[in-house]
Computed example of a mutant assay.
Amino acid sequence: MVNDLTVVKANSLIEASYRLTLDEMRLLALTIGTMDPKSEQQIFEFTVGDFVHKFPEVSIDNAYKQIQMAIKRIYDRSVRTEDSERVTEFRWVSSRTYFKKEGRFRIAMTNEVMPYLTQLKGQFTQYQLNHISGFSSVHSIRLYELLTQYKRVGERYISLEDLKKWLQLEERYDRYNNLKQWVLTPALTEINDKSDLFIEYEPIKRGRKIIGIEFNISYEKPIKKRPKFPHKNNYGKYVKLDTQNPKMSSHEYGVYARDCLNILDEHYSSIEDVTTEDLRNYLVFLAVNDSFKSKLGTKNTFSDEVKVRGFKIVDCELVKI
């Protein structure tokens, strides 16, 4: 399967009313991402491994049961589109199959939904599947799609009424503060942390009542500074690094290194984001004790990244190659 899948949807489908679980959304995104918008293919087959590979939030231990449940329910799901002249409802899929003991499943899209996925129905929006693959909420995916429609414009106003309709929340969150706390803040945090977009927003009032939200859409994510390491004096008088052989550093330095590793791992989410100086810090702290670990990889992972950036480590210091 191609690593970079592109999801293409008609804008009218993005703004349609429908209710799906997170796994059903993932299932459809994987299907649409695999689809050639110019082809007439309607039947798609995947493995559980394909699903887990594209959505790293899913545990392989739970994937079989999650996919079985999503496959079972998606057959009964429908989508509702509306314009000034008509309201139309149709199903997403015409058949679904889960192959027992094979970890394989098949989906057939309906004739009615295909024009919304093959660039035959109005204006379209597209995005990379990996931009939503780390999301853990249906609201994050739907809000991302609504905002990525306008990423070239850079801003979008959405009335509170439309937003709640598109997110299937018409009967919930009468108070804006509750909607903000339970829907907007978690969804936008995921979008800002895990996607290609950075979103800021401002509630729009009419009198004292909030009637909509103005979203500002950009690619410029603010650079968060890493928290400072604790002062070595907090660990005693003999916090000493042995630059020739870090494993021979003092016990106090080992405790200091462990705490600094935790700070680095809490701050960085991928090795590409790590500054070159902090790559050095990772390598030094990991070298102090073989039991020390990082969520971003092993010592070799960081050593390889340092070389890619044109450096090597000599006596615990960065040296240009």
Rank of each mutant, 00 (worst) to 15 (best):
D4P: 00
E24Q: 15
T31V: 14
K38S: 12
S39A: 15
E40S: 15
Q42Y: 14
I43K: 14
I43D: 09
F44E: 02
H53I: 02
H53G: 03
P56E: 04
V58A: 09
Y64G: 01
Y64E: 15
A70W: 09
D76C: 05
R77I: 08
R80E: 13
F90Y: 15
R91S: 11
K101A: 11
I107T: 05
N111I: 08
V113N: 07
G134T: 01
G134H: 13
I141W: 06
L160M: 13
W166S: 10
L169D: 07
E171R: 14
Y176P: 00
N178W: 05
T185N: 05
I191G: 08
I191L: 06
D196K: 09
E202Y: 03
E202M: 10
E214Y: 13
E220H: 09
P230F: 13
N234P: 00
Y235C: 07
V239M: 05
L241C: 06
P246R: 08
P246M: 08
K247I: 11
M248R: 13
H251I: 07
E252Y: 12
V255L: 14
A257V: 03
R258W: 08
D265V: 09
E266M: 10
Y268I: 02
S269Q: 14
S270C: 12
E272Y: 03
E272P: 00
E272Q: 14
V284N: 03
N289D: 14
S294Y: 06
S294H: 04
T298F: 06
F302R: 04
S303E: 11
S303W: 06
F311D: 01
V314F: 07
